[in-house]
């Protein structure tokens, strides 16, 4: 079973530390628009939903440059920035709005599961995020 990132959204408090850990892990700087996990904020209802790649692989098919593939080890999306032209087709194709264009590099970015050690999961102060299978996640949150 493939593991991916799940969120127990009821408990997410919207601190966005996951976003900062993500941008730091990938770019060694801090910026939420560089993050591959992003919290959808509904402040009026106090609802915060961490949103990241569901591994549906629609982006792979959408890429005209064959720049997107599957990481053999983790099953994560792998983007070859040498081949990526930043055309944005994958961004359009992503049903979950978790494929982004890097604002500086102007290349596609999405969650790469940090090679199997996702930093967002590791450092979430509320332990809201899980790197696990869907069955395990159901058990954990029931």
């Amino acid at each position: 079973m493939i593991k991916r990132i799940f969120a127990d959204t009821k408990r997410c408090n919207g601190c966005r530390i996951c976003e900062l850990r993500c941008s730091f892990e990938h770019d060694r700087v801090f910026g939420t628009k560089l993050a591959r996990i992003r919290i959808i904020m509904n402040e009026e209802q106090g609802e915060y939903k961490p949103n990241t790649c569901r591994l549906c692989y629609k982006c792979i098919k959408a890429c005209p440059e064959n720049a997107i593939s599957k990481n053999e080890k983790t099953g994560a999306i792998k983007i070859d920035h040498e081949l990526c032209t930043g055309c944005g087709k994958c961004v359009e194709a992503c049903p979950f709005n978790v494929m982004f264009l890097h604002p500086i590099k102007e290349k596609a970015i999405t969650c790469d599961l940090c090679e199997g050690d996702p930093q967002c999961v590791k450092y979430c102060p509320e332990k809201v995020l899980f790197y696990t299978t869907s069955q395990e996640f159901k058990k954990l949150t029931n």
Partner: peptide, 17 residues
């Protein structure tokens, strides 16, 4: 109290909803 409601980048999140 319903839940915590944090400021950006805060591990304490004293804010509550």
């Amino acid at each position: 109290k319903v839940k915590s409601d944090s400021c950006f980048a805060c591990p304490i999140h004293c804010g509550k909803y």
